[in-house]
Amino acid sequence: MKDAETPGNGLEKSNVAQLSKNDRQQLLAEHVLNAGTVRVEDLLKLVDASPMTIYRDLSELENDRVIVRSRGEVTAVATSLSETSMKYRLTQEEDSKLSLASQFEKYMTRGTSIICDDSSTVFSILKQFTSVGGLTIITNNWSIIQLAGSVPDWELITLGGRYDRHLDANYGSAGVKTLQQVRADHAFISAAAISDGVVYHPYSQVADYKALMLEASVQSHLAVTASKFERKALYRVADTADFDSVVVNAETPEDTIAKLRERGATVRVGTTPKQ
């Protein structure tokens, strides 16, 4: 195994023995997402792995529409105008998303109806409460639909429309009509980006759905990890103060939390479950 080194471009080379495939791909993806465009030769210096391994990682990230490759350069697909695939997002920040679940336990009681958006964060939260019976789940997301369908004691209302494979969710007039007709106890929603205390999403139809979900619930709750405060997107969903609670993970900077509270948001911090 090679010793870690610092290449001429200032990138810290990571020890491959400490990285799983998912961790390695996340490291590569985050570097590209932060930089926008990176030369392949620089990524080969970032991780202490064989070129074949890195090229295979990049190919999988490209298939998941996280990056695109062209003429020796790698460019991020996720920008203020685009979002990474649900498949990819389900593998990211798993521990951080899990830590948010502690702040949702109080809402998970028999007879409760919950509208869920198409986020991997909400999917991760719901997974922790499959032992709670008598919930009604309303969603357009197929990962959540499959999860809810596997719990015998859960009622499931699916929001119809045209299936978007990239987002693993339905969108269209049928889903909008249902959202305009229902009134759930809670809405669990996440965000692609939060800027200056406002929730945004790269796609207008997704932003519209999330906004409708707030209106279709008695109480709405935003679940986000610290990384969402570092991103930007184009279409406004709602102000963080419009939610009844904003749940963040422990890694969220204190000044970020303070600014949300100054804005009028009720912020709660998730805790990692004890092993």
Rank of each mutant, 00 (worst) to 15 (best):
T130E: 14
Q25M: 15
V218Y: 04
E73M: 13
S102Y: 06
L234S: 10
V132Q: 02
T6E: 09
A233W: 01
S119Y: 00
D242S: 15
K45L: 15
M108G: 13
K127F: 00
D3H: 13
F129L: 07
L100Y: 04
Q128W: 00
I189Y: 00
V182S: 03
E262K: 15
S143N: 10
V176D: 15
S50H: 09
T130L: 00
R165G: 12
G10S: 14
A226E: 06
S102H: 07
G197N: 05
L126H: 04
S124P: 01
T112M: 05
T109E: 15
L159E: 06
T266W: 03
V247D: 08
V246L: 02
D164S: 10
V182G: 07
D42E: 12
R231A: 08
A148V: 08
A148N: 06
L90Q: 11
A78K: 05
E30V: 13
S14K: 07
M52D: 11
P51C: 06
V199C: 05
D208W: 03
F243C: 10
V77H: 11
N140Q: 04
E155D: 15
T121N: 15
L11M: 13
S50R: 11
L43Q: 04
V267C: 02
E93F: 15
E215W: 00
V16S: 14
G72D: 09
T139G: 01
N140S: 11
A184N: 10
E215K: 08
V66C: 12
D23C: 03
S80F: 01
A216F: 00
S195N: 07
P273H: 05
N15K: 06
G10R: 08
R69M: 11
V77P: 11
T112E: 08
H166F: 07
D42T: 05
T79G: 11
V32Y: 13
K259V: 02
Y163T: 09
Y88N: 04
T79K: 01
V68R: 14
N63S: 15
T91A: 09
R268Y: 05
T266S: 10
T272L: 14
G270P: 06
H186Y: 10
L212Q: 10
A191W: 01
Y107T: 15
R231S: 07
G172F: 05
K87A: 04
K45R: 12
A29Y: 15
L98S: 07
S120E: 03
D57R: 07
L27W: 14
A35G: 06
A265Q: 09
T37V: 14
E94F: 06
P253I: 08
Y203T: 01
A193D: 02
A174M: 15
